[in-house]
Design a protein around this nucleic acid. Sequence first.
DNA 1: GATCGATCAACTGCCCCTTGTTCATGTTGG
DNA 2: CCAACATGAACAAGGGGCAGTTGATCGATC
Lengths: 89, 89
Amino acid sequence: MNKGQLIDQVAAELGDSKASASRAVEAVIHSITNGIKEDSNVTIVGFGTFTKKNRAARTGRNPSTGEPMQIRASTTVGFKPSASLKETL
Amino acid sequence: MNKGQLIDQVAAELGDSKASASRAVEAVIHSITNGIKEDSNVTIVGFGTFTKKNRAARTGRNPSTGEPMQIRASTTVGFKPSASLKETL
DNA sequence: GATCGATCAACTGCCCCTTGTTCATGTTGG
DNA sequence: CCAACATGAACAAGGGGCAGTTGATCGATC
């Protein structure tokens, strides 16, 4: 499923236009993004929890050359699916 | 951020009521859930990709007793954040 | 009030992340 | 609708981080 298909399904579920569904999808994704950014986590009961994670610098490997290289400290996003999401699948 | 706060922010972004925002959030989450279920992945460009993952049975540990135990095969959901989501944080 | 989520313990298989390249796919504004 | 552009997926080797287990408790949410 891509964004266009997601918008289609949201429009069907809301019984609304695709333009309106598109705005809804944008607003939801943008709000989740801001929640992760500002609060470090977003919990959606029954779906899962997004968590901002800081990863320390570490030594990795350049797969092209095989040489060890330093991977800089970074920030990423984890997602823990809720039990009921997993049961839905 | 919890779901109520998410709905608040979506309502602000859409300039709409909380009830309407709540329906939008529900529709988006439900549509993502269905996309994961039916297509095994949902890609939202600029946010990330949800992927249905099948995990084989394996041996784990009961942390209560220390005894080895068999973890059944299961289905879970992975999330790979997009590069631009990570840059946003 | 019932349900869900977070936390914790020990252990181990799976996953993340690096560079560079290529190709495919997706998005969006005209 | 479509073209231009952007984004994502895949792959290589290796090591650190994470998922998942049970059971209990507590807090939050619906």
